[in-house]
Amino acid sequence: MKKAAPYLILILLAILVIFLKHWKGQDGNNQNVEKGGKVTNKRNRGFDRTLSYIEYTVHAKCRMKCRHISQEDIEDIMRNGQINYSKSEVNESPCPVYAVQGYTHDREHIRVIFGQCDNKTKVITCYNLDQDFECHCPGDPVTKYEKAQKILN
């Protein structure tokens, strides 16, 4: 048994090192992990509600203005809204897309589309689920009429 003691100690230390490396790798939202030669971000393992990473696309800013949705409304939905998984693409690679909805302080029912990748959460667009607004924002699909007008002019 005395001859086996050093080997047992080495095995226990190796297990402890493996456990600590694994536990340390799970700590923190923004650490990158090597998986099969590919670097992935741990934030991509679920919706991260950290507001400090939020950015707004030009399209989202236009939609917010048109639909009277404030930055405070967006942030409140990000913190407290419910993920609508049927409208989300959580397995999208490399950046999952989440449709998060809820009610603003003004009791407007809105849905916000967030894309989470790397160290950013981008607001892609937002909708008022109870009221339609006529918006013309960059990146909107062109109607057949508008396309015809562009061709004619």
Rank of each mutant, 00 (worst) to 15 (best):
N29L: 05
A5N: 06
G139S: 04
T125C: 06
P141R: 14
A60I: 04
V90R: 15
G25K: 10
H109R: 12
T104S: 15
S70Q: 12
N30W: 11
Q131D: 08
I151H: 14
L12D: 03
A5I: 15
V39R: 05
N80R: 12
R67Q: 08
D76C: 05
Q131V: 15
C126Q: 09
E34W: 04
S88V: 06
E108V: 06
A5Q: 08
E92A: 10
I83Q: 07
C95V: 07
I124R: 03
Q131K: 14
Y85T: 05
N29M: 06
Y56S: 05
N128S: 13
T125P: 03
C137R: 13
H109N: 13
A14Q: 05
C117I: 06
P96A: 08
N30T: 13
E34L: 09
R107F: 00
E55V: 08
D106K: 15
L129F: 02
L16P: 03
D76E: 14
I77A: 01
L13D: 08
C117H: 01
G115W: 11
E34A: 04
K120C: 02
G81E: 00
D140F: 07
D132M: 13
F19D: 11
V97K: 13
V17T: 04
S88K: 04
L16Q: 09
T121W: 00
Y98H: 03
T50Q: 05
N41R: 13
K3M: 10
Q71D: 15
K61T: 03
R63S: 08
I54S: 10
G25W: 06
Q149A: 07
M78F: 12
L8W: 02
A99Y: 00
V123F: 00
G139I: 04
K120D: 03
F47D: 07
L129T: 08
H105G: 10
T143F: 09
M78K: 07
N30H: 11
S86T: 06
D106M: 12
K24M: 13
D118I: 10
G36P: 01
G28M: 02
W23N: 12
K21H: 14
G139W: 07
H59N: 09
C137T: 11
N128V: 14
D27R: 03
G139D: 07
C135W: 06
Q116C: 01
Q31D: 12
H109I: 09
D130A: 13
D140K: 03
K120V: 01
R67T: 02
I113D: 01
D140E: 10
K147W: 07
Q149H: 05
K2C: 02
I11C: 15
A99L: 14
D48C: 02
S86I: 08
S70V: 15
D48V: 03
E134T: 15
Y145W: 10
P96S: 07
Q116F: 04
P138I: 10
F114W: 03
G115C: 11
Q71L: 11
H68S: 11
E34N: 09
G46Y: 10
